[in-house]
Design a protein around this nucleic acid. Structure first.
Lengths: 153, 153
DNA sequence: ATCAATTAAATTGCACACAATTAAATTGAC
DNA sequence: GTCAATTTAATTGTGTGCAATTTAATTGAT
């Protein structure tokens, strides 16, 4: 009685959104065996990537490229601090901002992490060119979704 | 000192994984204005899609295509029940399985939901063909990630 | 028929993610 | 200089998502 044969646009597996959603989770699961030995979750790994690119950033500087706010980052950063990879200290010039810096352990960790992207590439079973092209398309889609949301104000 | 110029493979924005991850969140945010009026979250919407395709499914039947287990689904389904869209009743033949069925309100809701995919397509700013092609590539990537995880046992 | 696997959900504990509110510091208009 | 906006994090509350354990029901080997 509640058939969907007449509304194929509602089929779960037709929806690109679900493809992106479930592939994101598959990525997190695929990263897990690589990140567990480093005592990092995937979101924590993303923060570490940013700090390895540029040490000493504020919470909002880290949040901007990740599209995350302090509600998510504050507890995550406290866990990274507890693990011993980062320091959290107030900026002396502006006591509002929290400066995030790498500890020695956090800097050393980078050496163990450099091989992960290559290992993940093998897991994906794609060439570098294919990955770059697909990544570009997915990024463009993400930008379209975010810019449209902004146009609604 | 902690420069990453020599390790571009660690740049956040080179990583397809982050593109997929952040686009998934952008999707959830873009769906929100469409789903709020229906009193649904995005994961709840996915469950409703499955039930609109085929009413009367067990928790594990719903979980298989979504890659979710009872740990996630049980509380989610209880919320859908509290909202009044589904019934949760034990199977009479096998008291272990919980049968999920649509209420009248849940069936009626489908009419309000059919327009969402089309509205989202406009938000994405892509043709149907482009969306289908990209969806196919992303799905294939997700399958590769999951099958490799399975080969590790 | 009985009891050890097996199966299906539920539960518990931890870690995001986001909206909304709060708190503290800074800036700026006057 | 003072006080109202603004800015930066932190906090609170809700909702996933997943691993690991628990509970209850069923199956199967004997």
């Amino acid at each position: 009685m509640s058939e969907t044969r007449e509304t194929p646009e509602l089929w779960l597996h037709n929806q690109i959104c679900f493809a992106v959603h479930s592939t994101a989770h598959a990525f997190t699961a695929a990263y897990k065996p690589h990140l567990d030995p480093l005592n990092l979750t995937y979101p924590q790994y993303l923060v570490m990537l940013l700090l390895w690119e540029k040490d000493d950033q504020s919470v909002s500087e880290l949040g901007k490229p990740l599209f995350l706010d302090s509600g998510t980052l504050t507890p995550l950063l406290k866990r990274l601090q507890a693990t011993g990879y980062i320091n959290r200290t107030r900026d002396h010039n502006d006591e509002r901002v929290m400066r995030i810096t790498l500890t020695d352990a956090g800097k050393t960790l980078k050496q163990k992490a450099v091989c992960i992207p290559h290992e993940m590439l093998e897991t994906m079973g794609m060439s570098v060119e294919q990955v770059m092209a697909l990544g570009q398309d997915v990024r463009k889609l993400g930008q379209a979704l975010r810019s449209d949301a902004g146009s609604r104000s």
